[in-house]
């Protein structure tokens, strides 16, 4: 983006309301915990809020926060800290408790993938993003995303006993 061509600063509140569910979902897939996902999302939005003058003018703040959450969710230390905090808390949020058990298993297998592959799967499927948009978010080439997708699907097929058929 040309630094002289700054987009108009949108409102953080609109950004938050528009993106929150998607970001919590992304964090849930990558962290495996509803409570932790909400906190990961909260932290990411807070980071955006504190730096909204800059983040809000980015060409795509949505890509920014997806990258933030995708990275933080697979961050070992951050996840461990969240686990520690949530161990003593009450039951998981209602929305995450209602996730189908088979799907929980599926997402668990996704988290067993290498981090980059898990991120690609989450962004491509949960957020229904095409490969080139996933590439922008993760800061890699579309070809790299394609490779990660293929490997991830192959691994998941093997582990879950599904047919292996390339997705788009």
């Amino acid at each position: 983006m040309d630094e002289q061509d700054e987009p108009v600063l949108g409102t953080f509140e609109g950004f938050y309301r528009r993106e929150r569910r998607a970001i919590v979902g992304l964090a849930f897939v990558l962290s495996g915990s509803g409570a932790a996902a909400e906190e990961l999302a909260q932290d990411a939005f807070l980071a955006a809020l504190r730096d909204w003058e800059r983040v809000g003018r980015l060409e795509d703040p949505s890509a920014w926060i997806r990258r933030v959450v995708a990275n933080r969710s697979v961050s070992r230390f951050r996840r461990l800290a969240l686990e520690a905090r949530h161990t003593h808390r009450g039951p998981a949020p209602q929305w995450s408790s209602s996730v189908d058990a088979d799907d929980v298993d599926l997402w668990r297998e996704v988290r067993r993938l290498p981090k980059r592959q898990a991120q690609v799967i989450a962004l491509h499927y949960l957020h229904d993003l095409p490969r080139h948009e996933v590439a922008v978010i993760l800061g890699c080439s579309e070809e790299t995303v394609k490779t990660h997708l293929e490997r991830a699907r192959r691994t998941l097929s093997s582990r879950l006993g599904s047919q292996e058929e390339d997705g788009p």
Partner: peptide, 30 residues
């Protein structure tokens, strides 16, 4: 079922589950 289909279906169900997530107020900065 292909893994692609399973992932798409699971993603759809998760998105549906997330509709139960209340859209909270803008977070206070701790």
């Amino acid at each position: 079922m292909t893994i692609d289909r399973r992932l798409r279906d699971a993603s759809g169900r998760l998105r549906s589950a997330l509709t139960e997530l209340p859209v909270a107020e803008v977070p206070p900065d701790p």
